[in-house]
Design a protein around this nucleic acid. Structure first.
Length: 212
DNA sequence: ACATTAAGTGATT
DNA sequence: AATCACTTAATGT
């Protein structure tokens, strides 16, 4: 675990903090598709993401879902942070988008560290900030962009976190993430294909104009 | 060969 | 942009 920790967080934390993390943290691995956090769960652990990507989903009363953003290496979940502090229930769910490795930290430690290590505090604030920005970005996207642009962005983000321009997913999967219908996704994908931005196959989409 | 699931399309709201 | 209804195509058993 030491090595993984160094790679993902070494540049951020001082030695003593890294050692503490190493002694109280538990290295956990999950497979693609596993549910890491479900709605209304109370959270006892803070995850520090080492490898892989986690998709954060929001759900309404009817059970309709919407993908908000991804967590990647070096990230933590700010929902966990404020859930833990108030010991509230989770407002979101987290699903392993790829196979995932993270270090799990008990809540009390994270509170101790807030006072003990300024780098930890900085990390927590920074994390809040970047999560907030990602959320704003998502909102802008939802509010101001047409489906067509949302879809394009969705595919680029997906290609980024999957580290591949060849995506294995169905139109229905996309529709679920974007909270729209499969028919709409199919039509828009078709038009993106006609623009030469992507190439379609069964359960497969190739992103051609990848520029990230 | 048949059933199931994914994708494409016109028409309607 | 959503929904319906229907078709076509690919895949699994």
């Amino acid at each position: 675990m030491k090595q993984e920790l160094e790679e993902a967080f070494g540049f951020m934390f001082e030695k003593e903090l890294l050692e503490e993390i190493e002694s109280v943290g538990v290295l956990r691995k999950y497979k693609q598709g596993d549910i890491l956090i479900d709605y209304n769960e109370t959270l006892q652990q803070i995850p520090l993401l080492i490898d892989g990507a986690v998709k954060i989903m929001r759900q309404d009363e009817k059970g309709d879902e919407l993908a908000l953003y991804y967590l990647e290496r070096g990230d933590t979940c700010s929902m966990t942070l404020n859930c833990c502090l108030g010991s509230k229930k989770s407002e979101i769910s987290a699903v392993a988008e790829t196979d995932v490795i993270f270090i799990s930290i008990p809540v009390q430690k994270m509170q101790d560290w807030m006072q003990k290590y300024q780098t930890w505090m900085a990390f927590v604030f920074e994390s809040y900030n970047s999560r907030f920005n990602e959320l704003l970005e998502s909102i802008d996207n939802l509010a101001f962009n047409k489906m067509h642009e949302r879809l394009h962005k969705y595919l680029e983000d997906k290609a980024l976190v999957m580290k591949s321009t060849s995506l294995n997913l169905s139109h229905q999967d996309i529709a679920n993430d974007m909270h729209t219908s499969r028919v709409v996704v199919s039509r828009l994908l078709k038009s993106l294909e006609n623009e030469g931005l992507i190439k379609l196959g069964r359960n497969k989409i190739e992103v051609l104009d990848f520029d990230a």
